[in-house]
Design a protein around this nucleic acid. Structure first.
Lengths: 195, 195, 195, 195
DNA sequence: TATGAATGAGTTTTCATTCAT
DNA sequence: TATGAATGAAAACTCATTCAT
């Protein structure tokens, strides 16, 4: 019941924060969208910042749950990577309406240690996931002996950059195509016959 | 004289916006830092938003001027790319204190068309620069016949992502090393003996 | 309840606007007089101008309601006119403390079409009322065949002018006496045995 | 030279006060229109209020100078009155662009004794003028033995009211025609064969 | 739990006035 | 005399938060 209310509030807040930004969105808006009164919001969250903090947590967990749950697969790494790329693109597209929020959090991260730490954990998890995949690829001989750390980081960075470009040029950028092209380029760089 | 004041204000504003965020930074602070009165600020900028708009323009032009000015060079593309990577890293490091501002602009871009357009022009310029370099590499036979569009985009995305990670984990990430590693991976993917 | 607050605010605003003028009266004062906080005022009116607009409407309706409600009467027109004159004088005296506000609205009317239109409607109503009375007088043969339009206008003008003189010389002008004298002069000009 | 500057300033101020109202018109506007700098204004007037005060004096003297200078005339009073009516209408039409200012002064009169007194003197002069004319009419037997005080006041009031209606309904009111009709009505009421 | 009216501190913005030159 | 950049006090307005019901 209480949990339900909290979800209601977070959803309403997400909508307004995405549309107006953290500073511009008003508690009034959130309350009205929730269908609750302004006072009621404060029964569940002690402040606007508390809502923002809650959203930070919700926001940076959803996206990758599907990935972190993947079982090790016997499929060729190459195929898995391309599959995952599609999934990532799907995830980015799914949260398109909220991308602005992500960048607002990044801005805040530059100023607040807790946010920085939280986000770093998130990226660490993602990184670990790709690291493992690459590592497996190396072990299986499907990937040349590249540095899996730096490679995973490169992949993550590429996805983040893509999300940014998509935010900035929603019409001009074919995200799935670009993501695939980028990933194929990286895969090419990882191909074992190079050595 | 007037130009000088405008620079003063932009600098003070940059400092406070970086430290506090657009919403939190107060005109009072900016004025005080400038050494001017609050009223004087309004002689040069008609509103806080006008200052932010001015900063947008200053901010996303500085970084790449050095690049766009480069003459075509006979050096091997491979060397040029690694050189440029160092320059980019230098630029990112140089504007480290203001990275938060960049991300705040990205968030705003998601909500305001003019900002989106301005940023897109910026990225278009950068993209054209890399595109040309790659194209030249292909013509010279130093790079395989990859899609220069997608490749340039990949490079840009990678740099943006790196900046983000650095903001989030200033201690944990060795930016120059990571940038070089990422770029070498991409270069590997572009190596001509692949075909 | 809400209606009650609105009345409270309008009353407080009237008092301060009358005393200080629209420009000088401060929202703070109005709030304090109401017993409300400044913020509360903004729950009911979105701006100072909105309060002024509301007052315009309240102000130019009260005065004449009593007149417009009058049933056609069999009394001699002559008597009716003198009765009405007294009522008008009563109305003017009643709103004496707020006369300044009326003139501020007239000044604004010169600059803003909507105000002009609103006031013109008000005068049109008043005009219609006197027009009808005069017309009835003509029909009954108690008034000579004068132009009822111009006559009604003359009467209204005379009252407005009187209000102005009273504002300017509250001590020197005996309004009831002057109003009666003016009206008797006009009635004389309307007497039927002239023709 | 100094006098010239003062005139310049008063004219510029008149223009802006008429257009924007006393409160809205800014010293900046006035200065710019004058062609002088803001600082220079303060060499000639010690404050905005001082300019307003100067305008009050200029404003309420121009209009009637032509009248007060009139020599007693042998013409029939009836004719003289209609002539004067035309002159008054001309005067009103002439200062049409500044009528708003007049009403702003009336509003201020309600709040400030000096303004009240100044205006009262002005009206007293005008009143005296009409009083004399009527008195002469009575003496000459061209006007019945009406109260010249009340009559003069009625005439003045009528003109003020007309000016107001014209401000409020510049299109709908034919001022010359209405003024003549109103005056004829009053003249009718003053006709000697009544007694 | 829930309401929503009320608060009041905090911010932007305005502009008459000053003053160094 | 004249300038116009600078001041700073004032005022409108905002909105997260509280609290009586």
């Amino acid at each position: 019941m209480s949990e339900e209310r909290i979800q209601q509030i977070i959803e309403a807040a997400l909508a307004f924060f995405a549309r107006e930004g953290f500073a511009h969105a008003r508690m009034d808006d959130i309350a009205k969208t929730t269908g609750l009164s302004k006072g009621a919001i404060y029964l569940y969250f002690e402040s606007k910042d508390a809502i923002i903090a809650a959203i930070l947590k919700v926001f940076f967990r959803q996206e990758m749950l599907f990935m972190l749950r993947r079982e090790p697969s016997p499929e060729p790494i190459h195929e898995q990577v391309l599959d995952l790329t599609q999934s990532m693109v799907g995830a980015i597209e799914h949260m398109k309406p909220f991308l602005s929020i992500a960048f607002e959090f990044y801005a805040i991260a530059g100023r607040r240690k807790e946010v920085r730490q939280f986000l770093w954990e998130y990226y660490t998890d993602l990184h670990a996931f790709w690291w493992e995949l690459i590592q497996r690829g190396i072990e299986r001989g499907e990937v040349r002996a590249a540095d899996p750390d730096a490679t995973a980081m490169t992949i993550l960075a590429m996805f983040e950059g893509l999300a940014l470009f998509w935010l900035v040029a929603p019409q001009s950028l074919d995200v799935p195509a670009q993501a695939e092209a980028s990933m194929r380029l990286i895969l090419e760089g990882l191909a074992p016959h190079h050595e």
